[in-house]
Design a protein around this nucleic acid. Structure first.
Lengths: 204, 204
DNA sequence: GCAGTAGCCTACTACGAGTAAGTTACCTGC
DNA sequence: GCAGGTAACTTACTCGTAGTAGGCTACTGC
């Protein structure tokens, strides 16, 4: 019994590490998003890539490590989406509006990445939940900054509370839209703006 | 090797099913809350109760079943807390205020139940996540009802969007308070009220 | 041609969910 | 007091999956 595959299956082509990492990430993101973290098996992912399990461990260390790598990518995408939206807006209200819209569109357009962020909130490993939390903190810091522009009269703690509330509302609304597919990203933005604007209209 | 315990350990006392179920639930709620669903092991829970694993399966069917039973209890507690608060309030604004306060106090006083609800959002089993979702729907329906009183001019979809937003904001704020323990339940309520009131003050 | 190494594999161990099958304490009717 | 029925309880498994040990092999540079 050598390590050589059965004669009917020719030995697999070798690829560079970078290329394999990209392949693995693509497959893993899909599997994690489709089946959830627990149900996904490393053997299955390896098989779909066309590799054996130890390679996954060689490149990503653990199942958590692999998930973390996927989350990292999703985080980057979300960050890029919102910062791009922020760059093109004018005025505090327009800014908020455009960022909300960008967020809802992100959950439409990057369904896979969004499913990842949405589903894996309670993965047992602390490194994972802290990565998740760091994604939120990024969004929250961003939002707080944005609020500061609209309401410079508010103190830090209150800004933070508002930012947290808004992020929480966004997440819930994005989930709500899965139950109500007829609600467009634009409409969701509109609902949330109408709830927030009266409190954020240039203050005092 | 019979099934009798070693002579140093006398055979365990037998208890009625109902009593055992209560014991198991108490231990399981604590373990799930402390360690999270995945990290908790059935053997460990059984051991802490002073039983062997098959009894847990006899009574709760599966690990998910056990978690579900815990969640069910937490759900009931949350529901009771908020409905009680709602009963004692007067006027739409007071109603919202009292319910928010009751929620934040719930997350203080029933820390264990809250940790359960907060952490297990993404347990892979669909029955579990749907139980979680049903808890939210209960809260959301409740909130929507409450909003209808304040803003009868709004249409159904918008009421639902507002309710979802508010629940999302509540959940995020409760989590935020874990990072900022100096913020009291009353202050959190105050922050959220100040964000919401301008939009919910008796409309149009 | 011939190292050296990066990429790859088979074949394990460890551990936890869930199960089969048997044992025993308690209760009930005589 | 005692047969015997049943509910409570146990040990000792199977099975699936995360993670690992250790070795083989195809490409690279000389």
């Amino acid at each position: 019994m050598t390590a050589r595959p059965a004669p009917t299956a020719p030995p697999r082509k070798r690829r560079s590490r970078a290329e394999r990492e990209r392949q693995i990430l693509a497959v893993a993101e899909q599997v994690f998003a489709d089946e959830g973290y627990q149900a996904a098996s490393m053997d299955d992912i390896a098989h779909r890539v066309g590799l054996s399990k130890p390679m996954l461990y060689e490149y990503f260390g653990s199942k958590d490590g692999l998930l973390m790598a996927c989350l990292h990518r999703a985080k980057q995408e979300l960050f890029d989406t919102t910062t791009t939206a922020a760059a093109g807006a004018n005025g505090p209200e327009g800014l908020l509006h455009d960022c909300l819209l960008a967020f809802f569109r992100f959950s439409d357009d990057h369904a896979q990445a969004w499913a990842l962020l949405r589903n894996e909130a309670a993965v047992p490993v602390s490194s994972v939940s802290s990565e998740l939390e760091s994604i939120r903190l990024q969004q929250i810091g961003f939002t707080a900054e944005l609020l500061r522009g609209a309401r410079p009269d508010l103190d830090e703690v209150r800004l933070e509370a508002y930012a947290e509330s808004i992020i929480g509302a966004c997440e819930r609304l994005a989930l709500w839209r899965e139950r109500r597919p007829e609600v467009t990203a634009r409409q969701a933005t509109e609902h949330l703006m109408s709830l927030l604007l009266p409190s954020l209209g240039t203050g005092a």
